[in-house]
């Protein structure tokens, strides 16, 4: 199969859908000739023109609300927020409007929009351009939350997100944009709400999201040399969450570690740990659940400090060993 990058997969998902469906368009800051801050929309304005690749003023509230209003009246907008940190400035429109309109209106209307946005640290952009705030939106009924970790998942999940009748927050990870993977050329859809077992194993379940999937897989390879068989599960979507796949895995392995880049305190890992604690899998646990997440600090600038602020492969290896050795 053909190999393309995660970034190209995101672009291809949008382009293919836009060729088929005139209601789909993109709006965002610098997405025109500049091609977006990370180059995701590069070349698209040349193909689709400025009406459908709408370069916007730096007005996150208005462009988020504009997307909501357009979705409510029959379009299927894709809003690119340049950095996921900027969701803070668009929050009213996402949380109070997009998420709630249908319920507040007694089941009338829908908001079929996708908010795509790059998250995460590792680029040296420091505290205001490096956060992972997915737990905020996962907390809001009415939103769906997607976090693809591979090029294949990114393309299939974005197609599903565009097709969805609800507002979907689609988190891309900046450091994953250049990663490559096998991606079919034709359109395909990955159901929102279906986890993926990225690696099968029998000794311990590691539930990892976004870039942490790759770190968990790297840790698993190291641990294999020591005879520890790690299962890595990528939920792929936080809302809805595929609880069944996680519960079944923990019943099999008896051990659970949750890893995400977002700050551990109040992070989504707490939700996953609680799902297990409340489920039938609890009785199968042979050791306490462990959570790995970012330190409770703003992301620092210095590369060594930045790296140390979020879980790395050795942290996962240590956590797995501790969990497996627990008596």
């Amino acid at each position: 199969m053909r190999e393309i990058t995660y970034l190209e997969a995101v672009r291809e998902a949008m382009s293919q859908e836009m060729r088929k469906n005139d209601d789909v368009f993109i709006l965002g800051e610098d997405i025109g000739v500049y091609g977006g801050a990370f180059g995701v929309t590069r070349g698209m304005i040349e193909e689709f023109g400025p009406e459908r690749i709408r370069n916007t003023p730096i007005s996150e509230a208005a462009i988020a609300g504009g997307a909501v209003g357009a979705a409510l009246t029959g379009m299927r907008p894709i809003l690119e927020l340049q950095f996921s940190d900027f969701i803070t400035i668009a929050m009213d429109q996402i949380v109070n409007q997009a998420a709630k309109l249908r319920y507040m209106y007694g089941g009338k209307g829908s908001v079929p929009m996708v908010l795509r946005t790059p998250a995460g640290s590792g680029t040296g952009a420091a505290a205001q351009h490096s956060q992972s705030l997915e737990a905020w939106v996962a907390h809001i009924p009415g939103l769906k939350v997607v976090q693809p970790s591979t090029a294949y998942d990114a393309k299939g999940l974005l197609k599903a997100a565009i097709d969805d009748e609800n507002p979907v927050i689609f988190y891309e990870h900046k450091l994953l944009y250049k990663t490559k993977g096998d991606v079919p050329e034709e359109q395909y859809s990955i159901p929102i709400g279906k986890a993926d077992i990225k690696r099968e194993g029998k000794d311990v379940t590691v539930v990892a999201t976004s870039i942490m999937v790759h770190k968990a897989l790297e840790a698993a390879e190291e641990l294999e040399k020591e005879g520890i068989d790690v299962e890595v599960i990528d939920p792929r979507t936080l809302v809805p969450l595929d609880e069944e796949t996680i519960v079944n895995s923990v019943k099999k392995t008896g051990r659970l570690i949750v890893v995400h880049e977002a700050v551990k305190r109040g992070g989504f890992g707490g939700e996953i740990a609680s799902v297990i604690a409340e489920s039938e899998a609890f009785d199968y646990l042979d050791s306490p659940i462990k959570r790995l997440g970012g330190l409770p600090i703003p992301i620092p600038y210095n590369p060594n400090l930045e790296k140390a602020a979020v879980p790395q492969v050795p942290d996962i290896i240590d956590a797995v060993k501790e969990t497996v050795r627990f008596k």
């Binding site: 368009f25 208005a62 909501v68 209003g69 357009a70 907008p77 429109q93 409007q97 209106y105």
Partner: peptide, 24 residues
Amino acid sequence: LGANGIVGGGIPLAVGAALTSKMK
């Protein structure tokens, strides 16, 4: 398109609805 409990919350929605009118 609805009343709104957030002061100023409906203004961007109106802009989005107008965008639909223009694009379609």
